[in-house]
Nucleic acid binder design. Sequence first.
DNA 1: CGTGAAAACACATGCAC
DNA 2: GTGCATGTGTTTTCACG
Lengths: 163, 163
Amino acid sequence: MNRPLDQTDWRIIAALQEDGRLSFNQLGRRVNLSAPAVAERVRRLEESGVIAGYQARIDPVRAGLPLTAFVQLRCALTKCLLKTTNSDEFPEVVEVHKLSGNWCSMLKVRVASMPHLEGLLERIGTHGEMNSHVVLSTQYEGRAVEPPPTDPQLASRSEGWRR
Amino acid sequence: MNRPLDQTDWRIIAALQEDGRLSFNQLGRRVNLSAPAVAERVRRLEESGVIAGYQARIDPVRAGLPLTAFVQLRCALTKCLLKTTNSDEFPEVVEVHKLSGNWCSMLKVRVASMPHLEGLLERIGTHGEMNSHVVLSTQYEGRAVEPPPTDPQLASRSEGWRR
DNA sequence: CGTGAAAACACATGCAC
DNA sequence: GTGCATGTGTTTTCACG
């Protein structure tokens, strides 16, 4: 329903992922556009949902949640975590994805301590078989999304089977 | 090195995770504080690193990256992805975590298409054994971090072995 | 550590081009 | 798309509790 994003849009997106509080003046300077022009583009990006919002990035370690873990879940179908619980029951769960493959879902959780993690896993475990991975360190997270490649080679790679 | 976060700090953190562009006026209204008071607290939170920055949330689907996948990697020690490559080589990789357990790292990747994913996995695969999980749908992501529980029961759970 | 009001500043917005 | 004028909202400072 929308025009594809051009290069300038992507420069705006990059700048706002770096600093979401840039004014239209500052932003315009970075992308070589006047303030009104950039304001109009940002308005479009927000309206079309490309920009879904703005948020402060909280460092979980300094906020008292130094432990991160990934939890894979193979739900018992009748009591799938995704359906039977509202998310308020598990504020520690900051991400939930439904997966293809053997495991039906992938959670990312933030906790304050090992006992906290242990207790959380016990509560989650009632929903099905479980597999957890404790994060030792995080190289990066919430990295800026970049424009997809336009490389025609890439688009044609799957054509190999035709010949 | 810093005072622990009080309840007001957490209300500020919650508000700024919801809307990172709130002015001190609006923010103050939400947490029942005057603008100067809230400005001082935010300054402290930024300085101490609890607030690590502000960023626009980009919807990867609308931005042309509708596919997300998790990739677990068991690196060949000599050519570990974490050490041998700079992150610019893999703009599709938006998260990198080092893990305990069998798999040495967990990546989250965003791609434009299946051929794109296939090509990326081939490139990543040169760094070691690999295990990938395609995300079918995402319930939520980048959920607001909440204050850790103060529940004493939780902190004492690990004492069970003493008796 | 908080308030409230006033000052200086920067910003978003509209319009002519 | 630009550049500028305008009015509004903001940040910031300060005296005070």
